[in-house]
């Protein structure tokens, strides 16, 4: 393996990366540094927050059977809510940080935020990926970053729902904090968008289920691609390096 393959690609300009979105590998490569440390740390940290949020969130909507004892000595539901609120606030701060990194990081860092929906070539490759997943293509293409179908799913089934969950979540938190709180000033508009508080609750809950459904698909596909595609997947999000299994284009 020559050292030229191992060198980290220099971060390209923001716009040039958007224009040159085609991340299909043109040269036979063995390994490429794709996900920088902040992106990887965010990925796993975010995953942990989501697991905590889904569990506690489910229990907030459908509480556990009642606990016996003096109410003054118990704070069971309070702690479940505390974990939910804390994890939600940490997730939101991490998301802000991640958006910041999308701007200053390498060009793979903003793939999640900017699917090139205006590119016909990109849509053709989405179609190619659909055919690969429906067993109509014998061989998948190689991608340094996300494949176009993955990018599409991550944007519409993960990023937008996550932003929606954060907005509705903070709006509901603002109700508890009080209408004169900073949170209500920042997120009171959510109630104008969705109507009354009950609707915001329903939307928040449905958004949780969208994220759960995405996670199921995401985990399955990541493992499947790791086995059946021509590149590494799971290990890449741990080490940052993308390995290719063959030298063909």
């Amino acid at each position: 393996m020559t050292s030229s393959f191992e060198s980290k690609p220099r971060p390209k300009g923001f716009l040039s990366a958007v224009v040159h979105h085609a991340t299909e590998v043109q040269t036979p490569a063995a390994k490429i540094y794709v996900y920088e440390a902040p992106v990887r740390i965010w990925h796993w940290f975010n995953a942990l927050c989501i697991v905590l949020l889904v569990i506690t969130g489910y229990l907030i909507g459908k509480p556990l059977p009642s606990v016996e004892g003096e109410a003054s000595e118990l704070f069971v539901f309070g702690y479940i809510r505390l974990i939910h609120f804390a994890a939600g606030q940490i997730l939101a701060i991490a998301l802000l940080f991640r958006i910041g990194w999308a701007i200053i990081g390498n060009h793979h860092a903003h793939q999640l935020f900017l699917p090139p929906l205006w590119s016909a070539k990109w849509w053709r490759e989405v179609w190619h990926e659909v055919r690969w997943y429906t067993f109509l293509e014998r061989t998948p293409k190689k991608y340094v970053g996300h494949n176009p179908l993955a990018q599409l799913a991550m944007f519409f089934l993960f990023l937008l729902p996550l932003l929606n969950a954060v907005a509705t979540g903070f709006a509901l938190y603002a109700e508890g904090a009080g209408t004169d709180s900073m949170w209500y000033t920042l997120f009171g508009w959510v109630f104008t968008v969705y109507g009354d508080s009950m609707h915001v609750h329903t939307v928040h809950r449905l958004t949780m289920w969208v994220i759960v459904c995405f996670s199921l698909i995401h985990i399955y596909v990541a493992i499947r691609e790791d086995i059946m595609s021509r590149q590494s997947l799971v290990s890449t999000m741990i080490s940052g390096w993308r390995y290719f299994k063959d030298d063909r284009e």
Binding site: A71, F77, G176
Partner: peptide, 16 residues
């Protein structure tokens, strides 16, 4: 916010 049963909510004590 001002319900007198709120302590039972925080404790996790609900009518089933």
């Amino acid at each position: 916010d001002k319900c007198y049963r709120r302590p039972h909510f925080d404790a996790g004590q609900f009518a089933e």
